Computed example of a mutant assay.
Amino acid sequence: MSLETEKHAPARRTQAERRAQSDRSLLLAAAELIAEEGFQAATFEKVGARAGYSRGLASQRFGSKDGLIEALIDYLHDRSDELAAGHHIENLSGLEAILASVDVYLRNLEEEQAVRSYFVALAGSVATLSRLRTAFAASHQRAKERFRTLIEKGQRDGTVALDLVAETSALMVGSLLLGISTQCLIDPTTDLPSVREAALNTLRRSLGAPK
């Protein structure tokens, strides 16, 4: 191989990078199956086949169906954090950061199948009284804490009303997103862009500091 060829040859991925890629492929395959066919469809056999790997690899990586769903929850949270960082939400005022977070979430809900799979899995875990309810409760707590932090930031910078209780207001924002997400699962024809606009206007009026 010439020096010129070596210069332009793609760098060989490390073992950690290959593992991260295979994990991501397995999780996305699970998300697609759940969104398309329901919670019970995400078997290791189907997940491995769709991702282009063996059933054994999915079992080895996640151990159980619950382990797979817990990993999917973590992946979706990490994905949400990446989207927020890409929009530089941390540089916005408290109120604008809340609105931008809601906007990014709802646009992602409309465009990415993986997000819809979260709520299908949530419904399945509640219906079957699965121990995964604990994992989903922790996930919702994590989202609530994120909004609570932004509400408190807004109260400090003067963009969010001081008479609001940050904890309960954060729960309200999270519950709004949960309700919209569930509605879109029940009725895929829901006009999400219009709902998104209405949600943003409502939150601006209900959270914003008086002028």
Rank of each mutant, 00 (worst) to 15 (best):
Y118S: 07
A97H: 02
N108S: 15
L99W: 06
A71G: 03
S80M: 13
E90Q: 09
S101R: 09
V126K: 07
D103K: 06
F62L: 05
S130N: 05
Y105S: 07
Y75G: 03
Y75D: 12
S93Q: 09
G67M: 07
H88M: 05
A85D: 14
A97L: 06
S101A: 14
S125C: 14
G86F: 07
Y118M: 11
R79A: 15
N108A: 13
V126I: 15
L109M: 09
S125T: 12
E112V: 11
D78Y: 08
L129V: 08
N108L: 03
A121I: 01
L92R: 11
G94Q: 05
D66L: 04
L76S: 14
L106K: 01
H77S: 13
A84I: 11
N91D: 13
V104E: 05
S93K: 05
R116A: 04
D78L: 09
I69R: 00
L72C: 06
E90D: 12
S101V: 07
L109K: 03
T128M: 08
H77K: 09
H77D: 14
A123C: 10
Y75E: 13
L99Y: 05
G94I: 02
L72A: 11
A127K: 09
F62V: 02
V102H: 02
G63K: 08
L76N: 15
A123F: 10
N91S: 12
V115L: 14
E96Q: 14
I73D: 03
F119V: 00
V120D: 02
E90S: 11
L95F: 04
G94T: 06
S125V: 09
A127W: 05
H88F: 14
I69W: 04
G94S: 07
I69H: 01
R79I: 06
Q113C: 09
E111S: 15
D78Q: 14
L109E: 04
G124L: 01
A123H: 13
L99C: 05
V120Q: 02
H87A: 14
